[in-house]
Design a protein around this nucleic acid. Sequence first.
DNA 1: CTTGACACCTAGTGAAACTAGGCTTAGTGA
DNA 2: TCACTAAGCCTAGTTTCACTAGGTGTCAAG
Lengths: 131, 131
Amino acid sequence: MLGMEGDLLKGHLDAIVLAALAGEAAHGYAVIEAIRRRSGGVFNLPEGTVYPALHRLEKAGAVNSDWTTAPSGRRRRVYTLTPQGRAALDRHRDVWRAFAEAVERVMADAGDGGGNGGGVADQPPPAAGAP
Amino acid sequence: MLGMEGDLLKGHLDAIVLAALAGEAAHGYAVIEAIRRRSGGVFNLPEGTVYPALHRLEKAGAVNSDWTTAPSGRRRRVYTLTPQGRAALDRHRDVWRAFAEAVERVMADAGDGGGNGGGVADQPPPAAGAP
DNA sequence: CTTGACACCTAGTGAAACTAGGCTTAGTGA
DNA sequence: TCACTAAGCCTAGTTTCACTAGGTGTCAAG
């Protein structure tokens, strides 16, 4: 995942893949491309990430797949959101919203340091110290 | 992490812990409480998550810790952001912003399905089919 | 025929949060 | 005084999930 360090995406991948298919059905490569384009190039997901996700989602009933032939003659496996998948995407959106808001609330308070009273360090004379 | 499934928090924890300390120094329990309160109860982090994070951040030079005695007589290990930790928090905020925006862009496009032309399924007569 | 792009697949790996305990200490109630 | 609870801290082992590292097949162009 270029430009993004660590495991930021973990737990969000299924939602992102489902969202990529919400507009219209697409084959694997197109899903990857759609995610990259929509994210402004932030999410550049490896195939090894996306295909297992698609398989997982298909197994879970969130997407269906059909082999088709592109105008070029190439075989493609096209994935389509199921009604169940759409419902799952709606839930994912709610979860994301709640999650993002929670993160922003934690991050945002940082600057003012006021009005949160409790839970803070009492700084009386240092005691015995560490073990 | 109550109410949050899977690994949504992965990759974001350090940022959240640093942000919890940005206002003022705090001991472990207070960090946990601050995160829970600020997140509106969304992030209810286990001690086994937060303490290793604090230790990790201390080892990395982002926080310092000192043993103190609360008014009650209890020993507490109070953590304080270092200048390095503040700089790291700023970076984390930037990364979060970019990440969140990318996710929202991917999620938001879902509804319209228009204007993205390429990369979509060609649906001519189904070909030979799967292997 | 060779090469590169398209298209798909997957076992194994590693990172990071969480589980599952465990210990210590001060306050409270019986 | 004793038992229990809450505060406070610690950590090895486990689980989860994205990514790495390959690998195969097909089609078009040179």
